[in-house]
Computed example of a mutant assay.
Amino acid sequence: MADSLDLINRDPNNINNHLQCNFEDVFAEPEGTHSIDCVWKLSYTCFNLWKGICYKIATILCGICIAAEWGCDFALVSFYHIWCFTPIFKMLDINCGCAKKFYIQCVSCCIEPCCMACGQLFHNFKK
């Protein structure tokens, strides 16, 4: 599994495109309102440095535990779908199929003849 892990593109399905948080996506100075160049450059450096450090610390402290929890959650979801929900839906398909046949027979035997008779009765009326 680790052999197929892409360490460069870590969001191949673009799940988190909404999390654009580069310096340019957060800060912008409009024309006519510029800070001193060294302040802008240092702000850029500090932003990227602290964003990277804080993210790495958070992932070191919490990432593995959170990934383990999500792994367990998705394992349980898979378990419930495989061992509970799919068999229940199959049983419902079988039982509802029988109920559907019974309902169709009742309608065909009891209601359809009455409707056909009424249709034949009113078929002869003309405007």
Rank of each mutant, 00 (worst) to 15 (best):
R10V: 04
D73F: 09
F74E: 13
I60S: 07
C84I: 00
K100E: 01
A99D: 13
I111R: 06
Y55G: 03
C72Y: 10
G32W: 00
C98A: 08
N22Y: 09
K101N: 01
F27I: 08
W40C: 08
N14Y: 14
K127D: 03
H81D: 04
I60N: 11
Q105F: 14
I15V: 14
G32E: 00
T59S: 12
I94A: 05
K101C: 05
E29R: 05
L76R: 07
I88F: 10
C84F: 02
D73N: 14
H123A: 00
W83L: 10
N48A: 05
L76W: 13
A68K: 11
S43W: 02
C109L: 11
G97T: 15
R10N: 07
N16H: 01
Q20S: 06
K90N: 07
C114S: 10
A117H: 04
R10W: 04
K126G: 00
A58G: 13
S78E: 13
W40F: 14
I94Q: 00
G97F: 04
N95R: 07
V77D: 14
Y44K: 15
N22G: 03
N14W: 10
F47H: 12
L5Q: 08
P113Y: 06
N124D: 05
F102Q: 11
N22Q: 03
C21S: 01
G119L: 00
N17T: 12
I8S: 14
P12I: 06
D6Q: 04
N16G: 06
N13K: 14
F125C: 01
D25W: 07
C38K: 09
F23N: 02
C62K: 04
K51E: 11
N48D: 13
V26H: 06
G63I: 00
W83H: 10
